[in-house]
Amino acid sequence: MRFDRTFTSGPSPITSITCIGRRRRPPWYRNSCRSRPGHLLHLMLDGEYWLTTNGRRYLMQAGDMVYYHDGEDVIWEGTAQKAEFLAFGFFAPAIQPPPLHQRHFRAPEKVRELFLEAEAVAMNETNEFRRTCRLHSSLLHILSLLPIDLEVLDVNSVYAELWWRVEEWIRNTHSYHIHLAELCRRFFTTRSTLHRSCVRATGLSPHKRIRHLRMDAARGFLLYTPMSIGEIAGHLGYGRMHEFSREFSSYFGMAPSFFRQQASP
Rank of each mutant, 00 (worst) to 15 (best):
T126G: 05
S12N: 14
R246V: 04
L116H: 07
L146C: 04
L222T: 07
Q261G: 12
Y224D: 13
E161C: 05
Y251L: 01
Q81C: 03
T53R: 04
R165N: 09
H101S: 11
V74H: 02
F248S: 05
Q102G: 02
T79D: 03
L222G: 05
A263Q: 08
H207E: 13
H207M: 10
L145N: 11
T173H: 12
S175D: 12
V152C: 13
S138W: 01
L150T: 09
Y238H: 14
T173K: 11
T79E: 02
N54I: 14
Q61H: 02
E247D: 14
Y224F: 12
R186S: 05
Y224V: 09
R196C: 07
W76F: 15
R34Q: 15
R165C: 03
S264W: 00
I170K: 02
I20T: 08
L146I: 00
A92P: 01
T79C: 01
P37K: 02
I14T: 05
S137A: 07
G234T: 14
F90L: 09
T126E: 07
G78H: 03
P98V: 06
M60N: 06
C184H: 10
H101V: 10
G78A: 06
S144A: 09
D154F: 00
R130N: 05
V199A: 04
Y68N: 12
H39A: 02
T79L: 01
W169P: 02
N172Y: 01
M60V: 09
I229A: 00
L150K: 01
I142G: 00
R57D: 05
M65P: 03
M254D: 04
H235L: 12
N124Y: 11
N127D: 11
F85M: 11
N172G: 07
N54C: 15
R2P: 15
G234C: 08
L213T: 04
L213K: 02
P93A: 01
P147F: 06
R214F: 04
H212S: 15
F258R: 15
I14K: 03
R185Y: 06
G230W: 03
R200V: 03
Y251R: 10
S12A: 06
R5H: 14
S157E: 03
M227E: 11
R200H: 06
E182L: 02
F91P: 05
I232G: 05
S9A: 15
G38M: 01
N124K: 13
Y176N: 10
K208A: 14
S249W: 00
A201F: 00
P93Y: 02
L183M: 07
V155T: 11
Y251E: 15
S245K: 11
G220L: 11
I210K: 00
P97F: 00
G220R: 14
I210M: 09
L162T: 11
N31W: 10
T18W: 02
